[in-house]
Design a protein around this nucleic acid. Structure first.
Length: 273
DNA sequence: AAGCTGTCCTGAAAGC
DNA sequence: TGCTTTCAGGACAGCT
């Protein structure tokens, strides 16, 4: 579930509380995430100081002198800051203690992963990071860039936006929302979209992600301290999950369809091929 | 190369 | 009511 905005808000939430602190302990409770969770990890990190927390796509990077901890929240993962000693609940897989702060990973569906990458070039060459595409909030992500990158692609634009080898961080929700804002039909073959339409799409993606980050930021205290929620922020979606309901712009019924293994939502009136 | 499908996992919601 | 089925989601593996 967490897409780029949720991961970014998580990063901004925990970084001020943890950066500069030393790991004082921790434990693992489950080995079986998407990739096996290293049981010795908390012991390995104990005594090391967290230098910074970065993000690449949907990956969080907790940087230490000796390497980085690569955290992916999958679709049901969340990181929370709790007082040490807080009893664990079902699906709490990893604790890292930083003195009087406890960082706890919960992930019911266990699609997430936590991997230790030792220092070196391994960061850039690590298979999980090497193939990642452009950051959608970076200056390099321009209409012209996306136009050039899609010329030889016949895939419909919606699944292409979700392909993190092309652009990172855009999941099912924000792909549909961005295409609505840009008034582009999700079925349109990417390579047939003119530059002019990417001049709408790229800002639409930024606006969608920025709005979600802002929404998360405003509920940030709840997010890190409360027990509830999947980490998703309450937002008014234009199309996502609104099959059969009226379009907020034109009033026509929102439709859905399957693309790949995912449901896409769109307004056939507002969005054109 | 590009583009499909299958797979992992659990809980909520829908269907009978 | 209670059981069964479906769906949701990210991203890799393994096909064609």
């Amino acid at each position: 579930m967490p897409e780029l905005p949720e991961v970014e808000v998580t990063r901004r939430s925990i970084a001020p509380e943890l950066v500069g602190r030393r790991v004082s302990g921790g434990m693992t409770r489950t080995a079986k995430l998407r990739y096996p969770l290293w049981p010795e990890l908390p012991r390995h990190l104990t005594g090391k100081t967290l230098l910074s927390i970065g993000r690449r796509g949907k990956y969080l990077l907790l940087d230490f002198d000796a390497g980085s901890l690569l955290v992916h929240l999958g679709m049901s993962g969340s990181l929370r800051l709790l007082p040490p000693g807080t009893p664990p609940q079902k699906h709490d897989h990893l604790d890292l203690e930083f003195g009087d702060r406890l960082l706890r990973l919960r992930d019911p569906r266990r699609f997430g992963s936590v991997l230790w990458l030792a220092k070196g070039d391994e960061m850039r060459t690590h298979p999980l990071l090497a193939g990642l595409g452009i950051e959608p909030l970076s200056d390099e992500f321009t209409p012209r860039w996306l136009f050039a990158a899609t010329r030889s692609r016949n895939v419909p634009i919606k699944p292409l936006l979700m392909d993190n080898h092309m652009v990172v961080g855009i999941g099912n929700i924000y792909a549909s929302e961005s295409l609505f804002r840009a008034r582009i039909d999700p079925r349109t073959p990417a390579g047939r979209i003119a530059l002019k339409r990417f001049e709408r799409l790229v800002p639409a993606i930024r606006a969608t992600l920025d709005a979600a980050i802002a929404a998360g930021g405003s509920s940030l205290r709840d997010f890190i301290h409360a027990d509830g929620g999947s980490g998703y922020f309450q937002q008014q979606y234009y199309v996502y999950g609104r099959t059969g309901e009226p379009c907020r712009v034109c009033g026509k019924t929102i439709r859905s369809l399957r693309q790949g293994q995912r449901t896409s939502f769109f307004c056939a009136q507002c969005q054109r091929p």
